[in-house]
Write a protein that binds this DNA or RNA. Structure first.
Length: 572
RNA sequence: UGGGGCGUCGCCAAGUUGGCAAGGCACAGGAUUUUGGUUCCUGCAUUCGGAGGUUCGAGUCCUCCCGCCUCAGCCA
C-alpha cells in the first residue's frame, strides 16, 4: 500500500474536470469577489464523545478536500463544550482515525475549551450591550416559556433585569456560587420568532463538572450555538461546513457574530449527511450495538465506524474515493452499499496480492502423480501489477480444493470439476476427475484425479479448451487458518426506518458473521503481517486480523467478496 | 397547523447568463481472460414530483398543488 500522502497528490491531479458541487460554487464566487482576502479555511469539528464513522468520513473528506483543492487550510478542532459527555479516550481515537483516513492538519489541532476565557469575555460584551441576560427560570420553566412550533413564547420575568445585575450574576455563575441548573445566560433576541432557535437561546449553563482538559477551572460551559461560531471566528475559518439539521441555527450563528464588535464572520454552509444501506449511522444506536453485545466492540469489522472498517481491511483510499463519488448535495439520500464495495474492489484489484486459500476443503488425490514428490511452481502475485512479482508454491500428490468446486452431476453451465471433465489447477496442471469417495452419510470425502504432465504451469499449446480453473493448496504444506466471513449487519436496507414499532435490533442479520475454522492456506501466508490485504483467488478480498493474527493461528477477515456472475445467475 | 429545507434513471449525482438531460453504482447483453475476477464494447430518463403559465425554446423563470426531511435539550 502506498502512503496516504502520495495518494492524496494523485487524487489532486485527477481532480481536474471532476464533478462540482454547490459548495464549490459558493467558494468560487467568494474567491471571485475577493471575500476573506481570497483565503479558504475549513475545519472538521468533532465532539469527542464517540467514535468516528463513515458519515464523519464524508465530512472529513469534504472539509480537507475543499481546503486541498483551493490551496487552503483545514483545522482539526474538538468541540468539547460539554464535560459530562466527553472523554480523552475519544480524542485519541478521533485523531488516529483522521490520520488513518490520510489527512494532515499540521500544527492546527485545536480545542473549543482553549477559547473558554475569550468566549466568556464575548458574553460579557453582549450583556453590556443588553443583548444577553441571566435568567433564573429552571429548565422546565424555560421550556414552557418557549412556546410551541405554532405559538409564540413568552418573555422571562428576568429578561429585563439590569445590565449590572446580569453582569454580577454571570460573574458569580462563573465563580461557582450557584448550583447546577439554577441559572443560565440567555441571548436577548425574540421570544416570538418563528425560528425556535431565536427565542432567547441559552448561551451558558451551570455545570459543576470536571472537564477532560480544563479540569475544575469552570463551573459554567458554553452551549453549541454560542460556542461554535466563535470557534470558527477565532480560527479565521472562511467556510463553516455542517450538516442539514443546523440550517435553522444559521440565523443564530449569524446573530451572535453580528452583535459582537469587530469579529471575523465565517459563512455556515449545510449539506446532507451520509446514509448507507444495510447499516446505521446514529451514535446512539451504534452505542447500543456495542453495549448490548450485538457486535464485539467499536472496531468490530461489521461496524460502519472507521475503527471497524480499518479492522475489516478496507483501504482508506477507497473511502476517500467513495466520498468523491457520492458527491455533496442537500437532498436526503441513502447510498447503496454496493457503491462502497465497488470502490473497495477497485482499490484492492489493483493492490492486493493474490494467494490461494481453500475455505471449505475436500481432498483430491492425483493418482498418477509420483508419491513423495514436491514441485515448486511459480505463481504471479498480481496480474494487474507487473511490479508485484512472483512467488513459489508447493505442489504434491494430494491437494485440497473447494468443496463447492466439485459436482457429481453438473448442470449445463457448471464448468468446475465433474467426473470425466478436464479442469485447470491454477498455476499447476490440467487434471481430470476419475473417481470420488463418499462416506456413509453420503458426504464427499475424497476425489481422485489424473493429471497431464505436459500441462505444467497450467497451460498447453495444443489449443485444448479448459473452461474451469480452480484454486488449490497442497495437503502436506497447507497451513490451517480461521476465516471470518462478514456480511451486512442488517437484513433491511434502512433499519432506521420505524414503519411499525419494531426496534432496529430486530433487523440484525444473523449471518453477518460466519466463522470458518478449517480453512487451508498456502504456506507463505504464515509469514504475513497483521493488517495485510490479499485477494484469496476466486473467493474475495481478505485481511489478516490486526488484533488476533499470529503465524501459529492465522486469522483472516473477509473485506468484500469478488463480483460473482456465476452466483448471480444461480439466484435467478 | 408556524418556520427552515429538499424533490433529475433502481441508488448517488451533474445541470450557475433558459438552447435541445453528464458521470458513477446497480442491472442486461457480447468480446477477451490460466481468477465465472479484471479489462473492453453495447444497452439502460423523448424526460426532470404534479398541473398550469411566460418564451421561438424551460429541469432551469412565474403561479398553484403534492410528497419527504427538519426544528419546541440547560446535547452537538
Amino acid at each position: 500500500m502506498s502512503s496516504g500522502k502520495n495518494n492524496l497528490n494523485t487524487e489532486k491531479e485527477n481532480n481536474v474536470g471532476k464533478p462540482s458541487n454547490f459548495i464549490k460554487y459558493i467558494i468560487d464566487d467568494d474567491l471571485k469577489n475577493g471575500k476573506n482576502e481570497s483565503r479558504v479555511h475549513t475545519r472538521f469539528p468533532p465532539e469527542p464523545n464517540g467514535y468516528l464513522h463513515i458519515g464523519h468520513a464524508k465530512s472529513i473528506c469534504l472539509n480537507f478536500g475543499v481546503a486541498r483543492d483551493y490551496n487552503g487550510l483545514c483545522n482539526l478542532r474538538f468541540d468539547d463544550t460539554n464535560p459530562v459527555k466527553e472523554e480523552d479516550e475519544y480524542v485519541k481515537s478521533i485523531i488516529e482515525d483522521v490520520k488513518w483516513l490520510g489527512f494532515d492538519w499540521e500544527d492546527r489541532l485545536y480545542f473549543a475549551s482553549d477559547y473558554f476565557e475569550q468566549m466568556y469575555e464575548y458574553a460579557v460584551e453582549l450583556i453590556r450591550k443588553d443583548k444577553a441576560y441571566v435568567d433564573d427560570l429552571n429548565a422546565e420553566q424555560i421550556r414552557e416559556y418557549r412556546g410551541t412550533l405554532t405559538t409564540a413564547g413568552k418573555e422571562s420575568p428576568y429578561r429585563n433585569r439590569s445590565v449590572e445585575e446580569s453582569l454580577d450574576l454571570f460573574a458569580r455563575m462563573r465563580a461557582g456560587e450557584f448550583p447546577d441548573g439554577s441559572k443560565v445566560l440567555r441571548a436577548k433576541i425574540d421570544m416570538a420568532s418563528s425560528n425556535m432557535n431565536m427565542r432567547d437561546p441559552v448561551m451558558y449553563r451551570i455545570l459543576h463538572a470536571s472537564h477532560h482538559r480544563t479540569g475544575d477551572a469552570w463551573s459554567i460551559y458554553p452551549m453549541y450555538d454560542w460556542a461554535h461560531g466563535l470557534e470558527d471566528s477565532l480560527e479565521g475559518i472562511t467556510h463553516s461546513i455542517c450538516t442539514l439539521e443546523f440550517e435553522d441555527h444559521r440565523p443564530l450563528y449569524d446573530w451572535f457574530l453580528e452583535n459582537l464588535d469587530g469579529v471575523h464572520h465565517p459563512q455556515q454552509i449545510e449539506f446532507a449527511r451520509l446514509n448507507l444501506t444495510y447499516t446505521l449511522m446514529s451514535k446512539r444506536k451504534l452505542l447500543r450495538l456495542v453495549n448490548e453485545n450485538y457486535v464485539s466492540g467499536w472496531d468490530d469489522p461489521r461496524m460502519p465506524t472507521l475503527a471497524g472498517m480499518r479492522r475489516r481491511g478496507i483501504p482508506p483510499a477507497s473511502i476517500r474515493d467513495f466520498a468523491d463519488r457520492i458527491g455533496v448535495a442537500k437532498a436526503d439520500s441513502i447510498v447503496d452499499r454496493a457503491m462502497l464495495d465497488s470502490c473497495i474492489r477497485e482499490d484492492l484489484n489493483k493492490n492486493a496480492k493474490r494467494v490461494m486459500v481453500v475455505l471449505d476443503p475436500v481432498k483430491v488425490v492425483i493418482t498418477n502423480y509420483p508419491e513423495n514428490t514436491v514441485e515448486e511452481l511459480t505463481a504471479e502475485n498480481n496480474p494487474e501489477d507487473e511490479n508485484a512479482g512472483h512467488r513459489t508454491i508447493p505442489f504434491s500428490r494430494e491437494i485440497y480444493i473447494e468443496r463447492e468446486d466439485f459436482l457429481e452431476e453438473a448442470p449445463k453451465k457448471f464448468f468446475r470439476m465433474v467426473p470425466g471433465r478436464e479442469v485447470r489447477l491454477k498455476h499447476a496442471y490440467y487434471v481430470t476427475c476419475t473417481n470420488f469417495v463418499k462416506n456413509d452419510a453420503g458426504e464427499l470425502t475424497e476425489i481422485h484425479c489424473e493429471y497431464d504432465p505436459a500441462t505444467k504451469g497450467g497451460w498447453s499449446d495444443d489449443g485444448r479448451k479448459v473452461k474451469g480453473t480452480l484454486h488449490w493448496v497442497s495437503v502436506p504444506h497447507a497451513i490451517d487458518a480461521e476465516v471470518r466471513l462478514y456480511d451486512h449487519l442488517f437484513t433491511k436496507e434502512n433499519p432506521d426506518e420505524s414503519r411499525d414499532e419494531r426496534d432496529f435490533t430486530e433487523f440484525l442479520n444473523p449471518d453477518s458473521l460466519v466463522t470458518l475454522q478449517n480453512c487451508k492456506a498456502e504456506p507463505g501466508l504464515r509469514e504475513c503481517t497483521p493488517g495485510e490485504r490479499f485477494q484469496f483467488l476466486r473467493k474475495g478480498y481478505f485481511c489478516s486480523d490486526s488484533k488476533e493474527f499470529t503465524s501459529e493461528k492465522p486469522v483472516f477477515n473477509r473485506i468484500v467478496t469478488m463480483r460473482d456472475a456465476w452466483q448471480k445467475k444461480d439466484k435467478k
